[in-house]
Design a protein around this nucleic acid. Sequence first.
DNA 1: CAAAATAAGACTGATTCAGTCTTACTATAT
DNA 2: ATATAGTAAGACTGAATCAGTCTTATTTTG
Lengths: 162, 162
Amino acid sequence: MRLIQSHILGSRKPRGTMFKLSKKADYGLIAVKHLALHRQQHACSASEIAGEYGISATLMAKVLQKLAHRSLVVARHGSSGGYQLAKEPSQISALDVISAIDGPVLITSCVTSHGNCDATERCSVKEPLRRVNESILTVLSTVTISQMSEEPQEPALVALRT
Amino acid sequence: MRLIQSHILGSRKPRGTMFKLSKKADYGLIAVKHLALHRQQHACSASEIAGEYGISATLMAKVLQKLAHRSLVVARHGSSGGYQLAKEPSQISALDVISAIDGPVLITSCVTSHGNCDATERCSVKEPLRRVNESILTVLSTVTISQMSEEPQEPALVALRT
DNA sequence: CAAAATAAGACTGATTCAGTCTTACTATAT
DNA sequence: ATATAGTAAGACTGAATCAGTCTTATTTTG
């Protein structure tokens, strides 16, 4: 017998749409925000954070490992160890967290980091989509962890190249 | 023996990231842009458009069917039939096309159209992500098909609620 | 009536994602 | 020193989704 639905957030559900954060990226944001709130206190262990939000401890550990790899958090081994933010919450963007876990944010496979399509170039929407992609990157990099810990404030303006 | 790599754009490749348009949505944008360019001329058949970009005809047909369902294009049956845009290219946004094919654009499962998470609400990032989601919707709805058929112009400004 | 087109749905293989498990390593605290 | 509590890392599994195909029916023109 295998445990199918093991924690609150549940197993995979019908997606309903593309354009979605992976759950791991989601968990990463939760973890980083948690660390931001408990900053200056003790280091938080993966299990501690996981328990707080009803997420599997080992899964949260994996997420935090990736964040540590990208130097967004620092890990302290041993008992009473755990994770702490490596930077100020205002210096960490949502994009930092998401791309640390899921890799680069690209809305199409055409828009690679080198700018070339993965196939013969008859595709006519590559360039327009590249501009859309940049706008989304701008949005994600504008939102910081410290902002995510506050209430809504002044709307910022993001340039959208059309 | 089965034909594995049947058309130019190729079969599935490692994704490398979340936050990506489905290929069908991509094909939808290509098709709509094509129809915009050949506007006022004859109706374009699915096979005609598919052939132009090296995409499977039946697959392109399915994409166009979804677009017709959402009244973005109109279908004409019979020989010398095909598809035509139902609106002006300036009245069709990238968001229209993408959501017609993939469903509503939601960056997390938490951010449903009803605004409530699919699980117990300990999630602390739901509200910030909802605001990010809105910004992305704004970006996508700002880009029109007519803009995608032009060269880059003036940057537009999109409000980002932080 | 035949040809060419759309319409719609079932089906398949590949891929990816979420989550688990296991093993090894490391540092703290008593 | 040694037990303990933690991180580190990778293999593994089941489920879900996606891309694409195939088949059958329907509609319209010529």
